[in-house]
Simulated assay, not measured.
Amino acid sequence: MTGATDEAAVRNPRASKAPKKARTRRADGERSRQKILAAAAEIAAERGYDGTSIAEISRRCGLPASSIYWHFKDKDDLMATVIEDSFAAWNQSWEIDADENLLTALVAVAEQLIGALRAHPQFLHIGLPLALQKRSDNPRPRQMYLQMRENLIARFEQIGATHFPHVPESRRTAIITYLIAGAEGLIISHELDQSSDIEEVLQIHATSVIQVIMQEASAWPT
């Protein structure tokens, strides 16, 4: 087989180079895509969804608008991808084993969640303000954030059912609502006053959630 490949390369020198060129083009394309996503996330964090434009993204990332439209259908598609990628990265940054004693691991889990949020905050900074707006156009990034939020609730519900099946479902749901709504409220508060230490207040919130979980776990017989 090697001889046949070498013979083909002699007959057509370009044939042996084509795969390498294709890989280079794919790598260059992925680098461009990541530059566009990073610029879009950066601008949206500064100016919000409505203040973000393709022209400004092009200027910030140093790529022409045609390159942006090659990777993304429009601004909605681009911003929805920023939210989706950020949430996926955050969601994959923490894990709870089904066999793990969650009560003894709650502090470590809280630190994981906060650390992951510090590394991947874009879905909250962009999606949460959009979710709070009553918009007739209902842009896709808003829909994406609300869908990701539902997915997160479902994940927490599964964790609660696995580790605390003896606690009534209504109580588990209330704790999850308190956990998510509290974190979102603290993010909004930080946006209004960015001199606040968001990590510190999130840690305080996590401590209060842990206390509630501990109380509920002991209040109901197994």
Rank of each mutant, 00 (worst) to 15 (best):
E30Y: 04
V212L: 13
E111Q: 14
S208L: 15
A27C: 04
R31C: 10
T5W: 12
D6K: 15
R23T: 09
T2P: 01
A22L: 11
A217H: 05
S196W: 03
T24R: 15
P139A: 04
D50A: 12
K73Q: 10
L63P: 01
A110H: 00
V212Y: 06
I68K: 00
T81M: 07
H205G: 03
S86N: 06
I176A: 02
Q133I: 10
G29M: 09
T177V: 10
I43S: 08
D28E: 15
L78C: 03
K20A: 13
E200V: 10
V209C: 07
P139E: 02
F164S: 01
D85V: 08
E46G: 06
E42L: 12
W94V: 02
I54H: 03
C61E: 03
T52L: 01
I68N: 03
I36F: 01
R25V: 09
W94H: 07
K21R: 14
G127M: 03
P139F: 03
A206E: 01
L132Q: 11
D193G: 04
M79G: 00
A80N: 01
V167W: 01
A4F: 12
G185H: 03
A110R: 00
R47S: 11
H205E: 02
A217N: 06
K17G: 11
A154T: 09
E95Q: 14
D99W: 04
A116S: 10
A183I: 07
H163W: 00
T162M: 08
A181S: 13
K75H: 02
I57L: 08
P141E: 04
A27V: 12
A65V: 01
Q194N: 09
I188E: 04
S67F: 07
Q122V: 05
L102C: 04
G51I: 05
D137L: 08
N101R: 11
I210Q: 04
T5Q: 14
A154G: 02
P121L: 05
A110P: 03
A217G: 03
T81C: 10
E150V: 11
G160N: 05
R59P: 00
D97N: 14
D6H: 15
A41F: 06
Q92Y: 09
P221L: 08
D28T: 12
R171T: 10
